[in-house]
């Protein structure tokens, strides 16, 4: 009996990370990051105490954490969410309650790129680099969501600079890349700083 859907039953409590490729249904309690490639459904009695990332994230229960959908986040009647919500499509139905920053739209593929850059950087043991990059991409998107062309340009260049920084960190030559605080939000400055940093690393 091979199972492709994971069900966390009503009386089950998971304290730990949940990752994988398939779909997931939470009827119980999960306190730990959820990152899956399939759909995540939090049932009416489900409770999740950390961030959730999936292809589609459907919530009817309670979540304290960010929700990121590669395709969509759907909050249905009964949902109670405290956390940020990001997806190309976000729907919040009558009866769903949310406190947090919500952003629809993909910004021309920036989140997908950042996810791929993140998973590329991870094998190089560059988790701080990935976190900095994601924060930088999010910070870049926040002030100018209406100006769609700007964010992807900004997101791609730091991705390249950070990946090189991550590679350098892995080879042990320079720790300046991952440890740097997130670059300022202004796109022009960010580009210059990235290039200056690259020169320093050489």
């Amino acid at each position: 009996m091979a199972a492709n859907v994971t069900v966390i039953g009503r009386t089950t409590r998971v304290h730990g990370r949940l990752t994988g490729a398939s779909d997931l249904e939470v009827q119980g309690f999960v306190e730990g990051e959820i990152v899956v490639g399939g759909d995540v459904t939090v049932d009416a009695q489900g409770i999740v105490g950390a961030s959730v990332r999936g292809r589609r994230v459907i919530v009817r229960g309670a979540v304290k954490g960010d929700l990121v959908g590669e395709e969509a986040v759907l909050l249905q009647d009964g949902a109670r969410v405290v956390g940020d919500v990001r997806a190309p499509r976000v729907a919040i139905a009558q009866g769903a309650l949310v406190r947090g920053y919500v952003q629809t739209g993909e910004g021309d593929g920036a989140p997908a790129r950042s996810a791929r850059a993140q998973s590329a950087a991870r094998p190089a043991a560059a988790r701080p680099a990935a976190a900095v990059h994601e924060r930088a991409a999010v910070a870049a998107r926040a002030p100018a969501p209406a100006a769609s062309p700007a964010p992807p340009k900004v997101a791609v260049k730091p991705a390249a600079a950070q990946e090189r920084g991550a590679a350098h960190a892995a080879s042990g030559t320079n720790n300046a890349g991952p440890r740097r605080p997130p670059p300022p939000v202004v796109p022009a400055l960010k580009k210059t700083k990235g290039q200056i940093a690259k020169k320093k690393e050489r």
């Binding site: 969509a72 729907a91 949310v98 947090g100 920053y101 919500v102 952003q103 739209g105």
Partner: peptide, 9 residues
């Protein structure tokens, strides 16, 4: 579904 939004709720 289909609305475009960015901001805090």
């Amino acid at each position: 579904d289909g609305a475009r939004f960015s901001g805090k709720l």
